[in-house]
Amino acid sequence: MANERYTEDHEWVRISGDIATCGISDYAQEQLGDVVYVELPEIGRIVSAKDEIAVVESVKAASDIYAPVSGEVVAINDAVEEDPETVNRDALGKGWLFKIKLTDAGEADELMDEASYEDFVQGLDE
């Protein structure tokens, strides 16, 4: 499971072939608190890395989610729109948000691996 890559904005990606499955990190869901609304992109949308692509809202606030990689949105997770708390329960599994067909297969390599991300998060909490 530990082949996720992470952004500094707390999104994760998991690459399988040329498809990147994306979501928000466990740290992010914990910081947000109870997720009550998720707005996902339209399938077919072409995005560049760091584009605002989705919104995850808790009771308190709305948080923008950025595309971790560039490409075309090829799938979205309807189940989290129906039951937003899935993001809290299983952020890295059933709480995935969207899938992007990669333009550049090497782009995700530039993101943090799990160990680097853990160090990054620890730095934020200090």
Partner: peptide
Amino acid sequence: PVQYPLGVLKEH
């Protein structure tokens, strides 16, 4: 305090 460990939803 904006929330306790229970969280906003369950506190409400």
